[in-house]
Design a protein around this nucleic acid. Structure first.
Lengths: 190, 190, 190, 190
DNA sequence: TATGAATGAGCCTTCATTCAT
DNA sequence: TATGAATGAAGGCTCATTCAT
């Protein structure tokens, strides 16, 4: 008997990312995915029960990897501002390095395809970050506004910064990042 | 394709908004639109050359109305901060009052359906607002960061604020708006 | 606007009969039916909501026509034996004249495709005939056995007779029919 | 294709019977059979060359067992009526005891799956019984009608009787069987 | 103009069968 | 022998679009 091939699952996920970025998630068909991943359409059903499950599982994978990446080199002992900066820079860098994946993640999150459990996953994974912000509010370093608003401000600015950097509208260097983060920090600091 | 009956075009647009908000743009079929608008499917082709054109035209309509609304009661003679506040509050209010329409607008903008010309329309309509910000930068009241980044910060925060208000996560009153705008202003002010 | 075409429904039903007889009901695909009926596959969905409904409706049509045919020239005033003979001969003749239709009817009835309501239809339509038999039992002309058993005996013999006639195993004439009916009558008469 | 493990073949046949009775023969997939029999799908190909062969072979098995069962306790020296009664009662009892198997047998016989050789098998196995009837005709104890007609009458009545008994429409006792057989005998006796 | 009928292209999914271990 | 992975072919169904009235 032949064991399931993990590399095939990887290839399928990568195909979904690429196609989402290229033509938009809602036009990604199983035939497209299969072709792009180099397998037969029916093979997708060996790994996933249905199109819905496939997308959901790919989403979970990508979301988890993304959140892990955001926490990279985060030092829990560092001061608040340094930690937020670290995470914010991680967001920007990860977006620049994984544009396809992010394209999928965003489209899926805003689509009707996403399941309730997957939507919940997003929130669950963001929890540690929101707790960091909550601590910052308690120590009166951050504005006492609702956490979702604070979080959205930070992520939204990271996203827009990444877009501008990748488009070349902004020079991709330390200075640019520093001033963009300045905007972010000014927004949230108390 | 000169629309003869404006009320019918109105009904079609409204159908698109409602269905987009209810089931997601990519699952909206022409049959759905026709049923919801109370006409026959083939009648849609009397008014629009194709599905693509229909959506594009509905988008233009909604986008124009939205941008006009944002400028409501904007007094060109007022001081910068007041003008930005006025526009920012307009954004929040318009979102709260036209959720279906905004659902469509956003899904369409992030979708693969949007044409290049429609995407350009978005930018063109935002021009006056960006000019206002540019003036603010010149007078050193606003941070000297790229306009797209500034604009994105402002709109993103308006959007998130509206979401929180409509969900009931934030009390819908003057005070809440004032503090949410504070966050916005702190982000962009020099 | 174009009105629905009744001749098309006829063509579809005829296609189902022919294909059922030729290859067996369970191998009849919508593509087959469409090709045989001279329409596009999707056109079938203009007339029927699904394959299941299509078959069910064709069954109803054929079943009703069949039962009506069985009662042809039945004289309610005639004596019992004459009436049973008339109906029995109708069964034999109808089978000989509509073999494709009967092939479909039988396969559908014995298949898992048939709906509960369609199965019930069969019984409802046979009711008048069973009442005739019941009357014959009351007047002690027929054996006092369960009606389903009596009915099955009669129909089963009609069927087998028709098979033998159409195969040419029996000469197709009055005499053959008379003796075959004799067997039938002997079985049920008191 | 020499089956090595007879118990496995047995399990496969039993699975086919059960599934045929439960969901209808034409919806029985190889995956279903394998699951129900407790083997892997590809293992079926170790025992049978194809789905067609598998069904055909299972049919042969069941058909042979059935015909053997019909002849149980048949005493070639007994008088005609007694022998026919014995066989008729065997038919009824066997049907009552092996409903799953009979469900498969009948569906397969009326399906398009059956091969010409398998259909011929049915006739060949029934030969001894038809010879008995032929002898009865020669001795003028039975009607001089075509043997297939005579045979069909007898089997058809056995089948209907079994159906009524298993449904509970008739009390399952000696008396019922006696009167049902009476109907049968009246039909065929000279 | 307005509409119901008609359709070709394409989608998701299933399945008998083969492959590779 | 036994099996899980892999697949091509096909099936039912949907939909944007065109036809015909």
């Amino acid at each position: 008997m032949k064991p399931k091939d993990d590399r095939k699952v990887e290839a399928i996920a990568a195909a979904v990312y690429r196609l989402s970025a290229r033509h938009g998630l809602s036009s990604v068909t199983l035939a497209d995915i299969a072709r792009e991943a180099g397998v037969a359409t029916s093979t997708l059903y060996v790994y996933f029960k249905s199109r819905e499950v496939l997308l959901d599982e790919v989403y979970r994978k990508a979301k988890t990897a993304t959140m892990t990446r955001y926490a990279l080199k985060d030092d829990p002992a560092a001061p608040l501002k340094a930690r937020v900066r670290r995470i914010w820079l991680n967001m920007v860098d990860h977006r620049l390095e994984n544009q396809h994946q992010m394209a999928f993640l965003e489209q899926f999150y805003h689509s009707e395809f996403i399941s309730e459990t997957s939507r919940a996953l997003g929130l669950r994974m963001a929890a540690p970050f929101l707790e960091l912000l909550a601590a910052g509010q308690k120590s009166e370093q951050l504005k006492p506004l609702p956490l979702p608003l604070m979080g959205a401000a930070i992520m939204g600015l990271a996203k827009e910064t990444a877009v501008l950097l990748s488009r070349g509208d902004l020079p991709d260097n330390e200075k640019t990042r520093a001033s963009a983060f300045q905007l972010c920090w000014d927004a949230i600091k108390a």
